[in-house]
Design a protein around this nucleic acid. Sequence first.
DNA 1: AGATTAAGTTAGGCAACACTAACTTAATCG
DNA 2: CGATTAAGTTAGTGTTGCCTAACTTAATCT
Lengths: 241, 241
Amino acid sequence: MKGKRPHLSITDSSEEPLTGAVEDYLKAIYALGRGSVSVATNDIAQRLDLTPASVSGMVRRLAGHGFLSYERYRGVTLTDLGRRAALRTLRRHRVIEAYLSGALNYPWDRVHAEAERLEHAASDELVDRMAAAIGEPLTDPHGAPIPSREGDMDETEYLSLAELGAGYGARVVRVSDEDPEMLRYLGELQIMPGAELIVISKAPYEGPIALAVSGTMLAIGPQLASQVMVEPLTDLEAPAH
Amino acid sequence: MKGKRPHLSITDSSEEPLTGAVEDYLKAIYALGRGSVSVATNDIAQRLDLTPASVSGMVRRLAGHGFLSYERYRGVTLTDLGRRAALRTLRRHRVIEAYLSGALNYPWDRVHAEAERLEHAASDELVDRMAAAIGEPLTDPHGAPIPSREGDMDETEYLSLAELGAGYGARVVRVSDEDPEMLRYLGELQIMPGAELIVISKAPYEGPIALAVSGTMLAIGPQLASQVMVEPLTDLEAPAH
DNA sequence: AGATTAAGTTAGGCAACACTAACTTAATCG
DNA sequence: CGATTAAGTTAGTGTTGCCTAACTTAATCT
Ligand SMILES: [Mn+2]
Ligand SMILES: [Mn+2]
Ligand SMILES: [Mn+2]
Ligand SMILES: [Mn+2]
């Protein structure tokens, strides 16, 4: 599913700026509901590390401002206005991540925390300059797609590495950001967007998954594997035996 | 006058982060009192575009946190703690300005507004990376000195162009930022840090000041000239006649 | 259906920051 | 010295955004 309103830029809204808290709420709701599904109070609270009571209050205010529709006890859905605001913040976040990584050599496990704050302070002009300076990238350092200025975003769903059968080859397209420790570990293993790998074997009962990553053999748990999104490689599709 | 505590970095304070409002107050008080002189409530209010009542309230809180000493009706003086916090924000601000200008080609009349927000969101690591990326500059794009990580800053006082006598040559060291319109005009005239000029004549009664700037003749008013800080050039010191 | 539980909401509070209106203090001037 | 004025403060209010404690609603299970 693609974004709407192809001719109305998400960066030219002449309204007063939103607060950082509001932007983070909208971003969280977008992430949880992929922009259209109804989202539960508790899930928002967990994602933002707030109490459900706080979310109840904020959600009422956001509905009042037209960012979402809200029926008590029934969860929350972004309106078009809310969706555009969420995508604008998401674009900022990911452009900033990509810039920090590409232009300032920022390690990929720390760009998220930095972008989480800068996304609320950077002007549209700055974000555009950053994007231009690194060649208008289509994804952030973790492989997440960057929404266009117009609010369109590639929402292709990928398979997780945990779902890939033994014998299959795949290219890593995206890993979950947010957990720096995990990112550092994945980095050590060379499991990052663009890397190609082959699933050698999968032990049963949630057992380790053996992989070949750029020539090296290694094994990871299924929990970690579920955080790695991959695209199967057609020319390696046949199980090795 | 130089900063103090040469061995205690201003960027390694492990305390909880200050709010943007607090950082802006401390920066304003530092700018108005050059870090040591007592500063008036009304002046802070004017500089931050707030009412004096708001400043009275905030100033009491800041004193409570040990950032300044305060006696009712008597103005305010930064403590060492407050001065260090101010210098840290000032360093961030100016490094960000220099980076935007040097690395992203940001026009010099807009870096100030952008830095005014980013200074509260950028981490120390980011500021350090920015400074390193552009070669650890000593001044921002307007010629203002950048405090060191340790909190030392060059506080040399310069002559303003309005005070320079006819016939003298000088190098521009610094211009006032904050007014984008003025900066754009000065830029057109090539009056910017590093530029060399000669005062051809000064009309009496606040009249126009005729200048030669890199070969071009032009005239500016004394009000504008007072915003341009210069360093007289010894080899052009003798009045032209 | 009735009881239990999970999810969500309300009530009441608090800290940060801003405002206006009204008052107080200090400085100045005749 | 006393009056005027400028500077500064207090009182009271509003918004944002968070919390805990207590309650209500909806979903589930026997
Ligand atoms: Mn954020
Ligand atoms: Mn990311
Ligand atoms: Mn600021
Ligand atoms: Mn500047």
